[in-house]
Design a binder for these strands. Structure first.
Length: 508
DNA sequence: TTCCGACAGTGGGGTCGCAAT
DNA sequence: ATTGCGACCCCACTATCGGAA
C-alpha cells in the first residue's frame, strides 16, 4: 500500500466529525491493506509508529528538503527508513540521522510530508486514536470489538492485534493469551473529587487503597527471570533491582503482579515524587543509588499466580490470591467498607501519612485495560490559591486564535511584584476561553514573542492544584503541580492575591 | 428525549542520558 | 561544563459522539 493512501484516509478521518464516520473510513482502508503492511497502516492511522520512537522530534524536523511531485513511497519503504533512523539514533550520530531524515522526506510529496511531520511529532490530531481504531478493526475483521479490546489487554500493542484480526478474525483474537515476560495493557483509574462519590460509583462494599505517588510497575516472573514494565510498557527492570529481588523472594515462580514503587524516607514517609522519578530513571550506578534512595514496592493486584491467569476473576478474588502470595509488608494498605464515615477517616489517615490519596475499587470488576473510570476511581485532596495572570500564550488546534495557556503568579509583598509559579490551560470552557481572549487583549502590554502576550497583572484567578514542588525553572524555586482554573475572581484585585509566603508554606 | 460513558485533544512540570557547543 | 533535545514519568479537564435509559 502507498503512503499516500494512508494519508488520504487520515485526511478523510480528520474532516469527518462523526465517530461512526471515522470508523467507516478506517475500516474501509483496513480492508484494502495487505497482510504484510497491516501493522504499519494500523500504527500510522492510530497516530503511532511501529518503532514507537525513533529519536527524532520537532527540532530534528527543521530544514526539510523540498517535496517530490509524484507519490510513490510505500508503507514498507517508509517503515524501513524509520527503522534505519532509529538504529542510527541509538548509535548517537546526529549527522547520520539528519541524512536519513532528509532522505525520507525527499521521497515524499508535500501532502505526505505534512502527514509524516504530524506523525513523527506525535500530533496527528485526526480525532481517532486507539479507541476509534479498535472499533475500525472490529468492523473490518467482522470480530466483536470486545474481542479486540480483550486481545489488546493481553498483547499490549494494537497493530499486532489488528493484523491478527484482519488475518484470522475472532479466532485469532481469542488465541491471544497472557504471556509472562510480555507486558499487558494496565488497568487505569478515573477520578472524582470526593470519597462519597467514589464509593457510590464503585458500588459497596468497595476496596479503598492508599494511592502512592510513585511509578506504576507491572512485574513478571518466570522461573528466575524477572521483567518490570511501566504504565506505557517500557522495560525498566535494570533500574529497580529492589523489585527484582522482591519478586525472586516470593514462593511462586510463575506470576504477574501490578503495583507501585516509591522512594520512602527512613521514617516511612514518602519522598516527593521527583525523588522517586529520578531514581527510577537513572540507569547509571544503580547499585550506589539504591543505597542512598531505596525503592519500596507495594503490590495491589495479581494478574497471574502459579500459572493461573486471574484477569477475569472479580477483584475481590484476585486480591485474596495476592494476599496469600506476597508478604503483608509488600501489600498496599487497604480497607474494605460500605461506610462513608469509615472511608472518609481512611482518607484522612492516608493524607496524614503523607501519601497522595485513595483509589476506590469495585470488588466485582475484572482486570480491563485502558478503561478509565469503570472499576477504579482515585480521590485526592485539592488545594486552591488566588493567583494573578501575568501573561498568556496562543493556543493550538481547536484553541487556535484563542489565548489559552495562562502564566500564573503569586504576590511578592517585598518587591510589590509577582513571582511566576507555572502555567495552566486546564479547566477552561469554550465560553471562558472566548471571554479571556478578549479581556487579555485589553490588558496586553505588547507581544513579547510570537506565542506569549504579557499582561498588566490585574486579573485574579482561582487555581486548584495538587501540591507545590521544588522547581529548577521558576524564579521562586517552586512550581504548582497539576494546576487548573476553577474560576475567575472579578471580586478580587491583584493586591488581594495569595503571596509567595503562603505558597512556600505549602511546599514540604 | 435525556443522560452518561468513553474518547480525543490540549497542553502542564520534572528528570535522565546524550550530543553538540 | 553547559545547553538543548528526545523520551517518558506523573497528570486534569472539557467537548463531543452515540448508545443506554
Amino acid at each position: 500500500m502507498l503512503l499516500i493512501d494512508v494519508v488520504r484516509v487520515s485526511e478523510a478521518v480528520t474532516r469527518t466529525s462523526a465517530r461512526l464516520g471515522k470508523i467507516g473510513h478506517l475500516a474501509e482502508s483496513l480492508g484494502r491493506v495487505g497482510a504484510d503492511e497491516a501493522e504499519i497502516a494500523i500504527s500510522y492511522l492510530s497516530g503511532e509508529l511501529p518503532q514507537r520512537q525513533v529519536g527524532v522530534g520537532w527540532r530534528g524536523l527543521q530544514d526539510l528538503p523540498s517535496p517530490k511531485l509524484a507519490a510513490t513511497a510505500t508503507l514498507t519503504d517508509v517503515d524501513a527508513l524509520l527503522s534505519k533512523i532509529k538504529a542510527v539514533s541509538g548509535q548517537g550520530s546526529q549527522a547520520a540521522r539528519k541524512t536519513l531524515v532528509t532522505q525520507l522526506f525527499a521521497g515524499l510529496t508535500s501532502q505526505e510530508q505534512a502527514f509524516m511531520l504530524k506523525l513523527l511529532g506525535g500530533e496527528l490530531r485526526q480525532g481517532a486514536l486507539d479507541g476509534v481504531m479498535i472499533e475500525a478493526i472490529a468492523k473490518a475483521s467482522g470480530a466483536p470489538s470486545a474481542d479486540v479490546r480483550r486481545a489488546l489487554t493481553l498483547r499490549g500493542w494494537l497493530p499486532a492485534v489488528g493484523a491478527a484480526a484482519l488475518a484470522g478474525g475472532v479466532e485469532r483474537l481469542r488465541a491471544f493469551k497472557l504471556e509472562v515476560g510480555r507486558a499487558v495493557s494496565p488497568m487505569l483509574a478515573g477520578s472524582v473529587p470526593q470519597v462519597a462519590a467514589a464509593l457510590e460509583k464503585a458500588g459497596t462494599p468497595a476496596a479503598l487503597e492508599w494511592k502512592l505517588d510513585g511509578i506504576r510497575v507491572q512485574a513478571h516472573r518466570s522461573g528466575t527471570e524477572v521483567k518490570v514494565f511501566t504504565r506505557t510498557l517500557d522495560d525498566i527492570t535494570a533500574q529497580i533491582p529492589e523489585l527484582v529481588e522482591a519478586m525472586l523472594a516470593l514462593p511462586v515462580d510463575d506470576l504477574v503482579l501490578d503495583g507501585e514503587v516509591i522512594a520512602l524516607r527512613p521514617d516511612g514517609r514518602p519522598h516527593p515524587f521527583q525523588v522517586t522519578a529520578a531514581r527510577t530513571r537513572s540507569r547509571i550506578d544503580v547499585a550506589r543509588l539504591r543505597e542512598q534512595t531505596p525503592l519500596h514496592v507495594f503490590f495491589f493486584d495479581a494478574l497471574r499466580v502459579g500459572g493461573a491467569d486471574l484477569l477475569d476473576l472479580p477483584y475481590a478474588e484476585r486480591q485474596a490470591i495476592l494476599a496469600t502470595t506476597v508478604p503483608p509488608g509488600l501489600l498496599t494498605p487497604r480497607l474494605v467498607t460500605s461506610d462513608v464515615t469509615a472511608a472518609t477517616e481512611f482518607f484522612t489517615d492516608v493524607i496524614k501519612a503523607g501519601h497522595e490519596g485513595l483509589v476506590v475499587k469495585s470488588l466485582t470488576s475484572p482486570y480491563a485495560a485502558g478503561r478509565r473510570g469503570a472499576g477504579w476511581i482515585k480521590v485526592k485532596p485539592r488545594h486552591t490559591l488566588d493567583l494573578v495572570v501575568l501573561a498568556a500564550e496562543w493556543g493550538h488546534g481547536r484553541r487556535e486564535g484563542k489565548l489559552s495557556n495562562l502564566h500564573l503568579g503569586a504576590r511578592d509583598p517585598d518587591t510589590g511584584g509577582f513571582v511566576m509559579l507555572g502555567k495552566t490551560f486546564k479547566g477552561l470552557t469554550d465560553e471562558l476561553l472566548a471571554w479571556q481572549t478578549e479581556r487579555f487583549l485589553e490588558l496586553a502590554t505588547g507581544p513579547a514573542d510570537e506565542w506569549t502576550v504579557p499582561l498588566r497583572p490585574e486579573l485574579v484567578v482561582e487555581i486548584a492544584f495538587d501540591g507545590v514542588q521544588r522547581s529548577p525553572r521558576y524564579p521562586g524555586g517552586m512550581a504548582l503541580r497539576f494546576a487548573r482554573v476553577l474560576r475567575y475572581r472579578p471580586d478580587k484585585r491583584a493586591e488581594d492575591a495569595d503571596t509567595v509566603e503562603t505558597v512556600r508554606s505549602l511546599m514540604l
